[in-house]
Amino acid sequence: MGVTIYALRRLIASLILLIIASFLVFGGVRTIFDPTARLSKNKDVQARERERVRLGLDKPLIVQYKNWMSGVIKGDFGREDIGSEQVADKLKKGFSKTFELALWGALVAACFGITFGIVAAIRRNRPIDYAVTAFSYFGIAVPTFAFAYVLMNMFALWLPNYFGSSEPWLFTTATTQGSFARGYDGLWSLASISDYIRHMLMPIMVLSVQLIASWSRYQRASMVEALQSDYIRTAHAKGMSKYRVYTRHALRNSQVPMVTVMALDIGLLFQGLIITEFVFSIPGLGKVFTDALSVGDATTIAGWTLVTATFVILANLIADLLLPVVDPRIRTT
């Protein structure tokens, strides 16, 4: 089966999955929430009824969904149920912030996670291996938000107080617009870069801790497996330098399973940052979702599900298509 046909088949299956998922979420929100409830005490008795007609709540659910979907196909995600903003604009704005965060988080996590995994595998059952394992247990078991608050206390309160600095080292919100407006000289000045880091470092730490924890474990396991294989022994036996054995043979082969794991996790980041964005009040996709959920805005939530689910599916697809590129042995089967 050619790669193109395979990709096409996967795409069609994904489209069906997207339609089912968005319908379930749309229908779920519509049946559970009533966005017109806030108008029940309005002096204008007709107001609620008008709002119902405007939102199409008087029609059956399937018709509502069909109307929404036919808009989506034309690229129109509709207007939010409460308020006047276009859902597409909200999602775009949210996406740019979440993407920025996810990109940094994934980069940091990839650097540290892979390094930790390699070091732990090479120094197996030595103190540094135990340290990496302990760290990954920590990252897997700690509740995200609790860790975030510990960091906030540490870097915005305790450490600055202890060292007698007048302002927090790192800021607890990730909105940088305010400080840009304060008139730093240019985007690339030292002041504005340090300001950017001070705002973004804590959210990045929080979201990358879990990734580092799981990626280092995967990397360690696959590296250990590679190191135990015959071709490594051969490479050692023929007198290759240790460094070359590790980088050329073990590392390359251990990267194969990592491609899948990392691609999937990066795709999941687009929905997985809800808590991090909530805690650090970042106006990203997660914020769009929590805001919409608190008022029962089905149009926004369905659009959000469609967009984020697309990323998850795309990540899945990319992982599967990348695999034969990284590991030519898979191509032949």
């Binding site: 999955l17 998922a21 379930l24 049946t31 959920l293 689910a309």
Partner: peptide
């Protein structure tokens, strides 16, 4: 497998929040 895919695409938090509201 399809059900698993579906649950992978719709995040757990969404299902939980909706269902608990209901």
């Amino acid at each position: 497998m399809r059900v698993t895919d579906l649950f992978l695409v719709v995040p757990q938090l969404v299902i939980l929040a909706l269902a608990l509201k209901k």
